[in-house]
Computed example of a mutant assay.
Amino acid sequence: MIKQIICINWGTKYGAPYINRLYAMVARNITPPFTFTCFTDNRDGIRSEVLCEDLPDIDYEVPETRRGIWPKSRLWGPKLGSLSGTVLFLDLDLVVTGSLDALFTYGNPDDVILARNAAKPFERLGQTSVFRFPVGKLVPLQKEFAANPFLVAEKYGYEQRFVTREAPGGIKFFPRKWIRHFRFQCLLPFPLNLFLPARLPTNARIVIFPGEVLPEDAVSGGWSGRQGATLSQHLKAFGDYGFRQNRPFQFLRHFMRPVNWVADHWRE
């Protein structure tokens, strides 16, 4: 069986550096044969081992919302470039830390299997940072979404909630220990985060980075784009704004020590 990995890239947020790193991490952690396909609107700088295909065509407008990555709905059509059969989707900003082989043999080939959403522990919610599906299985979702994209986005908020609740035949989850959420399951709670770096949980094969924190933030430390990259910047924010906003510890809770294991894995 050829293991088929896919990813999607549009716009300027990620691009070739992320695609190339993801390919390299996959190649180090998978038993051949495998393919790695990127559906993209820009092929510049992408390494030759990556099979590039155009973004799948759609005949509806993708809503611009604060929540949900609805352009992923392009992957739900009856065709997916030249691919058929089972594919494993990976977000561009995750870190592969262990073997991916079992993600292809877990469950049945016809299953739709998602990572668990650690941000919503009391909701049976999947995470589409990592999910496996047969090409064409999610066509009913795309049709429903295409009929009124703004209404669906408003009702479900996140595309992963739409997939979780409406996938034909329901969804399954990958084992909890295989896929971990960096901020909720790796980063230590305050005040330990001030002194110790985030840990890599035992048996983790993939660490996902939903939200504002990216792998490069973990490598450098701090929280770039929030309070700054150094502890002194966080302490200053704590003094300047924390008590004024009645949330005195929010700035210190966001601080990260540099994480060496992310640097070790997140590379070409």
Rank of each mutant, 00 (worst) to 15 (best):
R74L: 06
P71I: 00
T164V: 02
T164F: 09
R66M: 11
E64Q: 12
P121M: 00
E159P: 01
Y106L: 04
I113H: 04
R161N: 10
D59S: 15
N203K: 15
I171L: 04
C52M: 14
D264L: 00
F36D: 05
L141P: 03
G169R: 11
L80K: 03
K72F: 07
D54Y: 01
K172A: 08
F255K: 04
D44W: 06
R180H: 07
H234A: 07
M1P: 13
V259D: 01
P175Q: 05
E154V: 02
G242L: 13
K3D: 04
E159Y: 05
M25E: 10
N203S: 14
L194W: 02
F39P: 13
G136F: 13
W261E: 06
T164D: 09
Q142P: 01
A118M: 03
K172Y: 04
A198R: 07
G225T: 10
P134E: 04
Y241N: 11
P191H: 10
G98Q: 00
G228T: 04
R247H: 12
S82V: 13
L235C: 09
A27D: 03
R205S: 15
P63N: 01
P134I: 06
K79G: 03
K143F: 01
W266L: 00
N29M: 09
G85W: 08
Y14C: 06
